[in-house]
Design a protein around this nucleic acid. Structure first.
Lengths: 255, 255
DNA sequence: CCCAATATGGGTACGCCGTACTCGATTTAT
DNA sequence: ATAAATCGAGTACGGCGTACCCATATTGGG
C-alpha cells in the first residue's frame, strides 16, 4: 500500500525539513544535492507529468543521481510531497492592497487559490485538510485570514469562512482541471464526446422516469455550448458562496 | 503511469457495461463470474482497505480466482472504478417527502452525499466531474435535481446550484475523512498531535509577523477542543452555502 | 454423434513502483 | 596519519496493471 499522504513520520523531523533547520554535518563528503533542489525537481516533474508520473526514480533521474541518493535528504516520498505542497503554497501571489472591501479581498483569495491548483494540478491529489506547517503554508494562511480581518467576524468565524472559500476554490479548480484533462486525453470537445455517447445512452435512458434530469441536462448543455464550462461554473458558485458569507457579515444589519 | 480515472475506453463499451447489456455468448464454457460480483468484491475491498489497497490481484483473490480472469468481464481497472462509482451512487437514500421546502430538501441532499463519501472514502479519490453515466448516477442526478424543482430557478440554475451543493458536500466529507484517517493512523487526538508539534514550531514561527494566523489559530483550536471539528465545520459551511442559494431564489423578493 | 469453433480460466512475464540494506568512496577532526 | 562520519548508489524484495498465450470446457452445425 503506497503512501498517499504524510504526517506519518516524526513531526519534529518534518518541521525541521520544512523550515530548513538541518545543521550541516562536520565530517564526511560535502552533499552534492540540497533539499531545495530536490523539491524543485519534484515540482517540475509533477507539473509536467502529473502525480502519477512522480516517482523517486524519476526525480533522481532529473537530478542526474541514483534513486537512493534522495533518501539522504528526505525520509521518503510522503515527506517530499509535504515539501512540495509547502513550496508551491509559498509562491502564491499576495497583493497588499485590493480595493473593494472584504468581498473583493476574499474573491481575490479564491481566484488565486484556483490559479494555484491550475498551475499545479497534482496538488488536488495531495493536499490534506491538515497541511504541513511550513513557512509557505503559514504565510499563506496569515495573508488569507487578513482578507476578513476587522469586518465584524469572530476569530473562529474568520477561520471557518476561509476554510469555506478555500474549499470552494479547490472544488472548482478540480472541475476545471478534470475538464481540461478529459479534453486533452480524449482529443474530443464536449460536443464530440456527447455525440459519441448519446446513441448508446438513448437505448437505455428512460426519459420519462428521469424527466427532470433529461430536461435540465439538455438545457445545461445548450447553455454551456458543450456540457460544461468551468469559468461560468466558477463564477456562479463563487457569487453564491460570497452571498452566504455576506449574510453572516451583515447579520446585525439586515437589509 | 497507472490509470486514476476512466473515460479513456470506448464510450459505447462503457455504457454497455454500466447498464448490463452484454449478450450471453452461445459457445464456450459458462462464465464462473458476473460483472456484478466483481463490482461487489471491489467495493468491499476498497471500503475495507482504501483505494490504495484496491488492486486487480486482490479483487481476484477475494473471488477465489486468478487475477487475469477479471479481464474477461471488465476491460481494465479504470472501467471497474466506473462501475464501482455507479454502484455506490445508486445506493444513496432518496426519501420522497422531505418536509420544509427546497432548503430542507437541499440540506438532505447535502447530508446524504456526505454520508456517501463517509461510507466509501475511496470515492473521494476516484470521482470525476464527469461521472460515468450509469443507472445509479442518472437516478441520483434526477432525484437530486427535484429538490430544487419548481422554486423559480431556471433549468441551468438548478444544475449550477446542485453542482455547488454537491461540491460542498464532497469537500466537507474530504475534511471529515482525512481527519478520521489522521487520527487512526497516528493514534493521536488533535491535542496530542498539537502538543507534539508545538515545541518544534515555536522555534521557527514568527508570531509577530504572522500575528493574525497566531491569534485565529489559537482561537480556533480552543473553540474546536482540538484543532478541528468536522461536524461543526460542515454545519457552518452548509448554512452559508444555502444562504447564498437563498439569495438567488429570493432575488425577486428581497427581504 | 462428432468435431470445429469459440469462450473461459489463469500462468508467465514485463516494466513500473517505494524503499531496506549494504558497502566502497570521500571528507574532516583529532 | 588515522579514525569517524557521511555520501552516492547498486542490488533486491514485494507489490502493481496488464499483454500475451494456451489448455480446457462448452456448444452449434454437419
Amino acid at each position: 500500500m503506497p503512501i498517499e499522504y504524510s504526517g506519518g513520520g516524526d513531526p519534529a523531523r518534518s518541521i525541521e525539513l520544512l523550515w530548513g533547520l538541518r545543521e550541516r554535518a562536520t565530517r564526511g563528503p560535502k552533499p552534492g544535492l540540497t533539499v531545495d533542489r530536490i523539491v524543485t525537481a519534484a515540482v517540475g516533474l509533477a507539473d509536467a507529468e502529473g502525480i502519477t508520473g512522480l516517482s523517486m526514480r524519476r526525480v533522481a533521474e532529473r537530478l542526474g543521481v541514483g534513486a537512493m541518493s534522495l533518501y539522504r535528504y528526505v525520509p521518503g516520498k510522503a515527506e517530499l510531497l509535504d515539501l512540495m505542497v509547502d513550496r508551491v503554497s509559498g509562491e502564491t501571489d499576495r497583493p497588499s492592497d485590493v480595493p473593494g472591501g472584504w468581498r473583493a479581498r476574499l474573491e481575490q483569495v479564491a481566484r488565486e487559490n484556483r490559479r494555484l491548483y491550475e498551475r499545479h494540478p497534482w496538488l488536488l491529489r495531495v493536499f490534506s485538510f491538515r497541511p504541513p506547517l511550513g513557512p509557505g503554508i503559514v504565510a499563506k494562511y496569515d495573508y488569507e485570514l487578513r482578507s476578513v480581518e476587522g469586518v465584524g467576524l469572530t476569530d473562529v468565524e474568520m477561520d471557518q469562512v476561509l476554510t469555506l472559500v478555500l474549499g470552494y476554490a479547490r472544488e472548482a479548480a478540480a472541475g476545471l482541471v478534470e475538464w481540461r484533462l478529459f479534453q486533452e486525453r480524449s482529443g474530443q470537445t464536449d460536443d464530440e464526446w456527447w455525440t459519441a455517447v448519446a446513441p448508446s445512452l438513448e437505448k437505455v435512458f428512460d426519459a420519462e422516469r428521469y424527466s427532470v434530469a433529461a430536461r435540465v441536462g439538455a438545457a445545461s448543455s445548450e447553455y454551456y455550448q458543450g456540457t460544461y464550462d468551468p469559468e461560468q461554473a466558477f463564477e456562479f458558485g463563487l457569487r453564491r458562496v460570497l452571498d452566504g458569507v455576506a449574510a453572516l457579515v451583515e447579520r446585525d444589519s439586515p437589509c
